[in-house]
């Protein structure tokens, strides 16, 4: 009887491990493909057929990107907006989420509805732009942070998690005379690390990847330019290089790099810093916090 059970377990583990291995290969492919193309000679890439290894190795595509000035400053701004945006977003979302997780909170239903609607309604580009103009947020770093601080989706994710925590934990603290803020900081936050790590990842990736707000609001100010925006500019100008040739019918010179190859190199340059964040956060939700441990 016992032996049979171990066998079932082992079969399950092997089978499961195998499926995970397939997932691993299938999901790794697009990324390896991008990497291989980014390290392959542009004109050779045009022929197609690059899978996971470069055929004619070159670092030319990266060199083209790194000849641009302002990348370092833009990188700094990107890091800054990611850090500030994530910290501010986490503070805001967790505080609001806590209040909404309290079933005795008067404004709970009203605030929830008020927040959830923001996920489905938006006024559009022009009213948004005029608002930023009137708030003097154009040409300012804060346009990256303030409008994005409160995100209803993140709030609901955190709230759901907090609601799952046993209420007795808070109750005893309240009986001891602790305030709402104390309970939030001392009891709720430490227990919520898995969901906070997850949301931190979401916010960080969103902040790191966004370039459109830079373009809309800070496009004319090099000091506030972000890495993603600078890279978008490089990509665009390699593309319009050929468009210009078309409009003016000028004699096109044989270029050594193509927009497609630049695009792949840019993907790698932007993805690598942000995926390095992942392992740091991962430990918080792969291991997680055990409620039992906190209870005792």
């Amino acid at each position: 009887m016992k032996r049979k059970k171990i066998n079932v377990d082992r079969v399950f583990n092997t089978f499961n491990g195998l499926i995970m291995a397939i997932v691993l290969i299938v999901t790794l492919y697009p990324f390896l493909n991008v990497l291989a193309v980014s390290l392959n000679e542009s004109l050779d890439t045009v022929k197609g057929g690059i899978t996971i290894f470069p055929r004619k190795f070159t670092t030319e595509n990266y060199k083209v990107i790194f000849t641009y000035q302002n990348l370092l400053n833009a990188f700094f701004i990107s890091v800054l907006r990611t850090v500030v945006g994530t910290v501010a977003g986490l503070i805001a979302s967790s505080m609001v989420a806590y209040t909404l997780s309290r079933s005795d909170f008067q404004a709970r239903k009203f605030f929830s509805t008020f927040l959830v609607l923001t996920l489905y309604v938006s006024g559009g580009l022009i009213p948004g732009f005029l608002l930023m103009r009137d708030l003097h947020l154009i040409n300012s770093f804060w346009v990256y942070i303030l409008p994005a601080i409160v995100n209803a989706f993140y709030i609901f994710m955190i709230r759901t998690y907090m609601e799952g925590l046993p209420f007795e934990l808070q109750e005893s603290a309240f009986i001891d005379g602790a305030s709402d803020i104390t309970v939030f900081i001392k009891i709720i936050l430490p227990l919520s690390t898995p969901v906070l790590a997850t949301i931190a990842l979401f916010i960080a990736v969103g902040q790191w990847n966004s370039w459109f707000d830079t373009y809309l609001y800070n496009g004319s100010n090099d000091l506030l330019s972000t890495l993603q925006f600078e890279l978008m500019k490089i990509l665009q100008s390699t593309q319009t290089g050929s468009d210009m040739a078309r409009n003016n019918n000028v004699l096109e010179q044989m270029t050594t790099v193509t927009p497609d190859s630049i695009k792949m190199a840019i993907t790698i340059v932007t993805v690598v810093p942000i995926i390095m964040v992942y392992p740091f956060l991962q430990k918080y939700f792969v291991k997680g916090m055990t409620i039992g441990a906190v209870k005792s």
């Binding site: 580009l125 022009i126 732009f129 005029l130 103009r133 370039w211 459109f212 373009y215 809309l216 496009g219 925006f229 978008m232 500019k233 665009q236 100008s237």
Partner: peptide, 16 residues
């Protein structure tokens, strides 16, 4: 300089 569709930014310039 424009990135992506220039019309978007130009419309905002015109509107604002």
């Amino acid at each position: 300089m424009a990135v992506g569709d220039p019309a978007q930014k130009i419309n905002l310039i015109a509107a604002s």
